[in-house]
Design a protein around this nucleic acid. Structure first.
Lengths: 229, 229
DNA sequence: CACCTTTCTTGAACGATGTTCATAAACATA
DNA sequence: TATGTTTATGAACATCGTTCAAGAAAGGTG
């Protein structure tokens, strides 16, 4: 029951060994996290437990949050592939996406404690403009899947082709990010519901259904007197 | 030319003095930032320059990013009020919003260097679930303005009433946040354009204009008279 | 005015983080 | 096998953010 390996054969043996020790470190770290809580565990502790030097640990994971990110990224990737066939069973794009969002919400709820640290990590690599580091930043897995789904929906005529699928994907991702943030701040709210609402908004838009109904032909004064907020 | 005071009369004299020293500290910090760059300036340096103890500085601003946030929040608030009358000149909601987004994009471009730190601050107060701290977190100013605009648009019939204005406001905010993040990572892209595209997406949605055109007639024999919405 | 209470400031320490560097080991290539 | 490159090591280091007890200042009360 060791950590999964989303990257099958990296290249040389060196790279493989490096990834192996990385996974080992992440495993050890997660063991300590679940044992004593994330905050209570220090980097030195992790290094000692894994029997490596602190500098070695830092060469793999520059921050403590990166350990969380490593694990969660793996989980996302394998979760995605696990859901692949179930996704294919759904006929329409909307149905597929709603299923995915529900699953995603459940996953978020399960990993709730680690999400703040994961998000902090994602945010931290965003401003260190590393360029290359973003390519496999974990949220890329989600992004790729979403983009593929949007692209397929565009070809099926369910989604407009006027907007690139990639742009739709990250638009949805940021809407979901907002929902997660809100949910983390206000426990008890329904994350799945928020996800679905965000998706519905993205699909249908916020414009009034009937294009600018003739409200206010003159000074109105018609019905609905309560307009002051 | 001192820092503005968005909070006119807080309450007692004590509170006022506290806010005054806070503004003083932020001013001193910003002077050093522009002089030596954000990273190069340390908290001890700021405290020394402002002639207070380090603990005092930390009691006002728990992190270095909070100094940036304090200043930018003030700028946002006064910028909003400065734009209020210009906003009122625009007739339609879409026109108003596009104007606001263009101005906002220009402001972001001007403050570019500080944005990563500001965003990091916003993100940091999100997971410390302080509850009360969020109420005046600076992005609240933007959120309030957006929510009011959406509410007005709903009353004018330009925006659907099926979704609360507040929800629309933070949906847009997270879309804009995504655009800013993307822009910070990829300089040279047009932020104003991205803002306007995000807004257009929020308004019009991503669903295909013609509901499920008859692509792939084999599967569903339905002639699809367009009922998906 | 004298007194008490609350809040803020101060200085100094502290642990943890993240960084640095020279050295040694492991590996790849020839 | 010999050489060069990547990685691991151990130890030191600066800074950050935090903590604490004690003093100073503002506020309220008699």
């Amino acid at each position: 029951m060791k950590g999964a390996e989303p990257t099958p054969e990296p290249a040389g043996r060196r790279q493989r060994k490096r990834q192996k020790t990385a996974s080992h470190l992440a495993d050890v770290a997660f063991g300590l996290f679940e044992e004593q809580g994330y905050e209570a565990v220090t980097m030195e502790q992790i290094a000692a437990e894994a029997d490596v030097a602190k500098a070695t640990l830092y060469s793999h994971f520059p921050m403590k949050e990166a350990l969380v990110a490593h694990r969660l990224r793996d989980e996302i990737v394998e979760g995605m592939s696990a859901l692949a066939d179930q996704l294919a069973r759904h006929r329409s794009f909307v149905s597929r996406m709603q299923f995915l969002l529900r699953e995603s919400a459940a996953w978020h709820a399960a990993k709730r404690t680690y999400l703040p640290h994961y998000l902090r990590y994602l945010h931290s690599i965003a401003d260190t403009a590393d360029g290359g580091a973003i390519e496999d930043s974990g949220s890329m897995a989600t992004w790729n899947a979403l983009a593929m789904m949007f692209r397929a929906a565009q070809q099926d005529g369910e989604v407009t082709r006027a907007i690139p699928a990639g742009q739709l994907a990250w638009s949805l991702q940021y809407l979901l990010y907002g929902a997660v943030t809100h949910w983390l701040l206000h426990p008890g709210t329904d994350l799945a519901k928020a996800f679905l609402q965000a998706f519905a908004l993205l699909m249908n838009g916020a414009a009034a259904d009937r294009p600018a109904r003739v409200r206010k032909p003159a000074s109105t004064g018609k019905t609905s007197p309560g307009s002051s907020r």
